[in-house]
Every structure is written in structure tokens, then in C-alpha cells.
Design a protein around this nucleic acid. Structure first.
Length: 466
RNA sequence: GGCGACGUGGCCGAGUGGUUAGGCGCGGGUCUGCAAAACCCGUCACUCCGGUUCAAUUCCGGACGUCGCCUCCA
């Protein structure tokens, strides 16, 4: 299996320290405000990687953190008149809901920064002992970038050239403008924790170093996150972790590409964003998930109505397939299809190619079914691969209230959705037999309005939620 | 200015030194009360300029362009 590692800048074989034992740390969200489409991408990308690695027989420990204390949260909470921890918890639950809608599995461990302050303090003390960090007179503690020779290895930045860029925060407390905060002295009314350097809160980067080491040790396989985190966040993590332990910190660095809107990165700071919850409400989580998977995880991904609707059309195609060709019991999946999938996915998780072969397989199955042949092993393979990709066409549902209204109007019996649909479709079939097409079309149209597609096929009438 | 990624048909998006990606859309057909679906056929591209080669979209060099990072960021 080959992965593209930002550290190596090329495809490299994925070889964990212990064969089949993969520790995976992914930088999760800062729960400052509602997630946008971009947040869904990182979540789906690494969920996919995790699922695939597990499916291939690895024991994966997936850690995805929550940053629940930082400047942005403090500011956002103040603006909203909320307590910092309350806001963080509220946003955390919004994120959790969207993850669930996107079929993103919960990580094995989801550590929060505020619950690992002791680990961070220990790490900072060690860095000071080793001469890589220093407390400043104002109560801050800084990492001394120039003392860490390898600084810039991940992002290919040289400290002198960073200086030339000059957009670096200059603080009098720092010995060098490149130094970054490990610990920030608390201002009045800010949340704070006791430390050897006085009350304060952690700098952003230290939490990931501390929590990754705590749960995965130093030499774990994969560290992931958005490619906007390469510098400075991941660069600083390496400096802190390797500076403290003297060991390599994470073997491979995987970074997902950004979601663009109108050709530019989606970001809160520029106001160029679409809310994730709103998009899920409009199109459904499965469509969003497929939207992400249509592009390779490292490529930029443009968000637009046209592209999301193309994804929705593909979800419909998958859904129809699942209805026509349900998962057969006790059938061995077609090995050729599975092998092809593995070749694609072993190549840095090439989901566009994987999707292409699944669509190919669906076309073959449909053809064979049209010809009255059995296609069970191919069907089994396709269902299995959809599972690995986390695409679950059977879990989509909609609002039943309009169906109830229609049932009432037609004088049919209320009941579970399945029963009501059966009654409605029977009514419609009768109307068609009597050539009362006004009535049959009305039923179909009304169901369409409530999000249910009704189609008459050679095998009979089928329906599904869109 | 520094670092990095990338430029494929109407759109999205793989891939390859000479032979079909796939999806969406579009045109035609089979089927059908209609619609939709499904299937079949068609829609054959690779930013530009040099170079290597019998042969380049695919390798090398250059130009142009796009995007990201260098500041909080998935």
C-alpha cells in the first residue's frame, strides 16, 4: 500500500513499526462556530482512510482530537454572550451531528485539549529542561525555533525565508519572532489553568503533541489533517514532539485538500463558506459524502450547486441499484471486482477510480439482470465495497408527514411508512389498470413532493427516498 | 519574494510512451399510458513552446495560468 506523505513529498509504502498495527492521529476541529463544507471533507477523508485500513486487516487506533480552548473560541463566546466551555460544548455537538449524517464513524479516542492539561505541562517542562523552550517574563512560555535544527522539514520552509515573509507576529516577550507559544499567560476573565509559570492556557500546537504521545506513543504511523495545517501547526508539532522525545514523531503525514467556493478556499475568515448542516439538510449526508469521495482527498474540491447535484444523481443511481439488487446472503464477493478495488485504494486511496469501478460493476449487474442472469457475486462485491466507502444507500429517509396527509386524503389507513406506501402504490396501480392516469400521476407527483421517487420498472413499481 | 500542488473532452474526474476510465450532461435507440429508470449506440480530450523518441497527453526543459501555505484555519 502506498500513501502520499507530505513529509516525503511522494508516494511511499505504508510500513508501520509493528506490522498491521496502525496508530492514526488526525487534527480535528476547533469548536468555535458551526462547521462548513470544508470541515466535512477532512472528517470524511480520514474516516475513509481509517475504514479502508481496518478492512484491509490492520488494527487501527484512530485518535481525532477536539480543540476546545483557544483564542477564537474565547472571542466567539464573548460575542455570543456565552461561557467559553458552554459554547465549545454546543459546537461540539453540532459537529458530532454532522459527522453522523456523513456516516463518519466515531474515532476510537476523541480527546479534548482541556482534559489533557497535565500532559501538556509535562511536555512543556521537558522542553524547557532540554533547552528548547523558555519562560518569558510575562508568564508565556515559548518554543525556541532556532534550537531545533530540523525545523521546517515538513513544510520545506527555511527559518531565514520565513523571516523574509515577515508576516510573523512580533511580541516583545519572544526572543525570536519565529518562536511560538507553548503556554499563554491568562488575561483577566479568560479560562485558565495553574502552571509552574502562573495561570494560563495552552498554545494551540502543544495539545496535539501531548495527546498523540499520550494515546499512541512517539512512533505511530499516520498523522493527518487539512493541508492548511502543514505550516505552522504540524511543523510545530514535530518540533515539540521530537524535541522532547528525541524520536521520530509519526512516520507519515497525510493532508487533505481544501474545499473551494468560487475558486477560493472556503474559510470563515473570508466569509466564503456554506454551512455544513444546511447542505446536509438540503441534499442529505449521503450526497455530501459522495460529493467528497468523487474527488481524490488531496485535490482541491470546488463546491457548487451543479457539482452537488451531480453527486446527488450518483447517489440515486446507487440507491436504485441497491433496491433492484439487494445484498445477497452468504455469497462470496466477486474477486475480480474486489481485487480491482484494492489496487485503486492501495494507491493512496484513489476513490474516484474506486467509484468508477463500482459504477462499472453496477452497469454489468444491471445488464445481466436484464438478461435474466444471476449476478449475485458481483452484487455482493458492490455492496461490500460501498460499505468500505461508508456509502449506505439504505439509511436515507425523509419526512413522513406529507405521506400521512396523502393517505388521509385518499381515505387509506394510517400506519408505518412501509404499509402506507404499499397502500398508496396499490391504489395507484388500480388507477393505472382503470386508466385513470390523472389519479395515478397525482399520487406519484404528491409523493415526489415529499421526497419519494416512484418508478415503474419491468420488475414492478419501486420507490425510494431522494 | 520563499515553499508546495496542479493544468485532461460541455462539467467533474482517473489513467497511460503507441490499443475503452467512470460519473453528470447532451443526441439517437429499445422498453413504456406518461414520466422516470435500466440497457444499447454516439459525444473521443489532454494549456502553450521546445527537446528526447519510430511514436508523447504520458518523459525532460521552459513559458503561461490556477490554487494553497508563509497570519487563525479541515
Amino acid at each position: 500500500m502506498q500513501v502520499y506523505s507530505t513529509l516525503h513529498r511522494q508516494l511511499v509504502p505504508l510500513v508501520p513499526a509493528q506490522p498491521g498495527e496502525i496508530g492514526m492521529y488526525v487534527c480535528g476541529a476547533t469548536v468555535q462556530s458551526e462547521p462548513h463544507i470544508g470541515h466535512g471533507r477532512y472528517a470524511v477523508a480520514f474516516d475513509l482512510i481509517r475504514r479502508y485500513l481496518v478492512w484491509r486487516g490492520n488494527r487501527v487506533t484512530y485518535v481525532r482530537n477536539i480543540t476546545d480552548i483557544d483564542d477564537k473560541i474565547i472571542v466567539a463566546a464573548a460575542e455570543a454572550g456565552e461561557k467559553v466551555d458552554e459554547r465549545a460544548q454546543r459546537m461540539e455537538s453540532v459537529f458530532a451531528k454532522t459527522y453522523e449524517s456523513l456516516s463518519v464513524l466515531p474515532p476510537d479516542i476523541e480527546p479534548k485539549a482541556t482534559e489533557h492539561i497535565p500532559q501538556m505541562l509535562t511536555l512543556i517542562e521537558r522542553l524547557i529542561e532540554r533547552g528548547l523552550a523558555y519562560p518569558a517574563p510575562n508568564g508565556d512560555v515559548y518554543f525556541a525555533v532556532r534550537t531545533f535544527e530540523m525545523y521546517g522539514r515538513l513544510s520545506r520552509q527555511r527559518p531565514d525565508e520565513l523571516m523574509a515573509g515577515a508576516r510573523i507576529e512580533v511580541t516583545e516577550a519572544k526572543n525570536d519572532p519565529l518562536d511560538f507559544a507553548l503556554w499563554k499567560a491568562a488575561k483577566p476573565s479568560e479560562p485558565s489553568w495553574d502552571s509552574p509559570w502562573g495561570p494560563g492556557r495552552p498554545g494551540w500546537h502543544i495539545e496535539c503533541s501531548a495527546m498523540a504521545a499520550h494515546y499512541l506513543g512517539a512512533d505511530f504511523a499516520i498523522h493527518g489533517g487539512g493541508n492548511d495545517l502543514v505550516f505552522p501547526h504540524h511543523e510545530n508539532e514535530i518540533a515539540q514532539s521530537e524535541g522532547a522525545s528525541g524520536e521520530t514523531f509519526s512516520r507519515y503525514w497525510l493532508h487533505n485538500g481544501m474545499v473551494n467556493l468560487g475558486g477560493e478556499k472556503m474559510a470563515k475568515s473570508t466569509g466564503k463558506l456554506v454551512g455544513l448542516s444546511a447542505a446536509i439538510a438540503e441534499y442529505g449526508g449521503a450526497t455530501l459524502r459522495l460529493f467528497y469521495l468523487r474527488a481524490h482527498y488531496r485535490s482541491p474540491l470546488e463546491y457548487s450547486k451543479e457539482l452537488i447535484e451531480a453527486a446527488a444523481a450518483s447517489v440515486d443511481r446507487i440507491r436504485r441499484f441497491a433496491l433492484r439488487a439487494p445484498r445477497p446472503e452468504g455469497v462470496e464477493p466477486d474477486q475480480a471486482i474486489v481485487d480491482h478495488f484494492i489496487v485503486a485504494m492501495d494507491n493512496d486511496f484513489a476513490t474516484p477510480e474506486a467509484l468508477a469501478l463500482i459504477f462499472d460493476g453496477m452497469t454489468e449487474v444491471n445488464r445481466e439482470l436484464d438478461n435474466g442472469e444471476s449476478a449475485d457475486s458481483k452484487i455482493a462485491a458492490i455492496h461490500q465495497l460501498l460499505d468500505v466507502l461508508g456509502i449506505r444507500p439504505d439509511t436515507i429517509t425523509g419526512d413522513v408527514s406529507q405521506v400521512r396527509n396523502l393517505v388521509d386524503e385518499l381515505g387509506l389507513a394510517q400506519g408505518p411508512l412501509e404499509d402506507m406506501m404499499e397502500a398508496l402504490l396499490e391504489d395507484r396501480t388500480m388507477a393505472r389498470v382503470e386508466r385513470d392516469f390523472a389519479r395515478s400521476d397525482m399520487i406519484r407527483d404528491r409523493l415526489a413532493e415529499s421526497g419519494i421517487v416512484v418508478e415503474d420498472t419491468a420488475d414492478g413499481t419501486r420507490w425510494f427516498w431522494r
